[in-house]
Simulated scan of single mutants.
Amino acid sequence: MIKVGIVGGTGYTGVELLRLLALHPHAKVCAVTSRKEAGMRVDAMYPSLRGYTDVVFSTPEDAGLGECDVVFFATPNGIAMGEARALLDAGVRVIDLAADFRIGNVAEWEAWYGMRHASPELVAEAVYGLPEVNREAICGARLVANPGCYPTAVQLGFLPLIQSDAIALDSLIADCKSGVSGAGRKAEVSSLLAEAGDSFKAYGVAGHRHLPEIRQGLSRVAGEPVGLTFVPHLTPMIRGIHATLYARLVRDVDLQDVFESRYANERFVDVLPAGSHPETRSVRGGNLCRIAVHRPQGGDTVVVLSVIDNLVKGAAGQAVQNMNLMFGFAEDAGLGIVPLQP
């Protein structure tokens, strides 16, 4: 049984980690940090965890994180990069759910995130935690950069097309929608029910922080730069991401076979039958990416529909999946959960 610490346990990804790890057969959460809530029982803040944990929030200094086997950072951007080194030096493995180690070019990261990187030397060591691409490297990693939610849905949707050399790489389009939980648990006017309900809007059209991460991942797979237009939208739902992806075909392939073959052995990617239209509610609460591929009117445009739960496969679930790989557990340990419906 490994000892787990969670830094930043009061946010949505933190409580999702707690939910998933509560029944994990090989992991026990021993420390959850929150300066503001130190001394409060975790299940007092999140009653859904009553009977599953008796952990009390503690300050990072009092949490004994250095005695853990693995520490998850479920914190805002900029926290893990300042604290990861001490934990790594103590022999603790680190999984960062924020963006501190996702982008290999430190100068580009600093430009997009508006701060100086505190541990640039760790960026080169960090393994990008998309198991469907980097499984072998994750198994041997001590520092994993957990992918963002939009990047997970988009990369899994485009990956088979790029690897099969079926599409032009200069004009990819990712038209994506997210539920409001993607903005986190912080108090913010734009996330209020009266503001986000009964409405639908695009944002970050001029440039979103997930753009360089997606572009980097796709370019690594392609072996050359890709041209990508990424437009995120906010939808009046709590959980879920729906990515509608467009590309131009450059050779005739059996698209259904391309996707089914690529993901035939992937536990957490479900390629739906031809003609399907995946719904976000079909993955709510589960660590799944469900994908359908279309070729409208038999033309040269391919449309991929990719859906995930942004808090699970897009965050905490994928982080647990990475932990399982790092410690040699079954990849689906603690993740055999059926999505919720309705």
Rank of each mutant, 00 (worst) to 15 (best):
I2K: 14
K3T: 13
V4T: 09
V4R: 01
G5I: 10
G9E: 08
G9I: 07
L23Y: 08
R35A: 13
R41H: 13
P47N: 01
G51N: 00
Y52K: 09
T53Q: 01
T59S: 15
D62F: 10
G64H: 02
E67P: 05
N77F: 15
I79Y: 07
R85L: 04
A86G: 02
L87V: 11
I95K: 03
I95H: 02
A98Y: 08
D100K: 14
F101R: 04
G104W: 04
Y113C: 13
S119P: 06
E121H: 08
V123K: 02
V127E: 00
G129C: 14
N134Q: 12
N134L: 13
R135V: 08
A141L: 06
R142C: 13
V144H: 09
P151L: 00
A153L: 04
A153V: 06
V154K: 06
V154D: 01
G157Y: 01
L159E: 00
P160D: 00
S164M: 07
L169P: 02
V180L: 14
A183I: 14
K186R: 10
E188K: 12
S190E: 13
L192Y: 10
A194N: 11
K201V: 08
A206N: 10
P212R: 05
Q216R: 10
S219V: 03
R220P: 14
R220H: 10
L228M: 01
P232W: 02
P232E: 04
P236W: 05
M237W: 08
R239I: 03
H242Y: 12
T244L: 12
R251C: 09
R251S: 06
R251P: 08
V258C: 07
V269I: 08
V269H: 02
V271E: 06
L272R: 12
H277M: 11
E279N: 15
R284H: 11
N287M: 13
L288W: 08
I291E: 01
A292M: 07
R295D: 15
G299N: 13
D300F: 05
D300G: 14
T301F: 04
S306T: 11
S306F: 06
D309V: 00
N310K: 03
F327H: 11
G334S: 04
I337C: 04
I337S: 06
L340D: 10
